[in-house]
Amino acid sequence: MTDKKNQVSRRQFLNYTLTGVGGFMGAAMVAPMVGFAIDPLLKGQKDTEFIYVMDVSEITNEPQRKTFKVDQVDGWYESQVDRTAWIFKTEEGNILALSPVCTHLGCTVDWASNEQYPNQFFCPCHNGRYTKTGVNIEGTPPTEPLHAYEYKVEDGKLLLGKAKKR
């Protein structure tokens, strides 16, 4: 008991070991539960499925509203959900399938639904507007263009995947 500096008292020793062992046991108990709770973050993205929507020959220069069904696995609940796309050919002749979800706050936009703006996508919630190719118009609430669906053409049929940021 002479070298006081490096001495660990019995009380300190017991404190450290009990805290250590207790902490380890507590962590072993809580760790699986935390993993359980954050499981949605651990699950990766699923591969995109491409769904037949319409024949390429039917696509016009005027945007057409098309709905299609997508298989959705939501945990233990499997169902088919509706997706909507505005499909048309651009002036360059490319196919464009726009998502109707407003990039401002997620309302649904409509083509030429406002008489004042016959050649624009219009969102009724906060008067957001987009040009025909889905580019947001300066001075209206949306901050980025409408998302566009990934697409494939097979045997003259148009298949759509997920709507992605452009």
């Binding site: 699986p32 539960m33 993993g35 359980f36 499981d39 651990l42 945990g75 233990w76």
Partner: peptide, 15 residues
């Protein structure tokens, strides 16, 4: 939902 949480969720069987 029990089947899902036990077989699909991380550590579901343990919890």
């Amino acid at each position: 939902s029990v089947k899902y949480l036990q077989t699909q969720v991380a550590h579901g069987q343990i919890v």
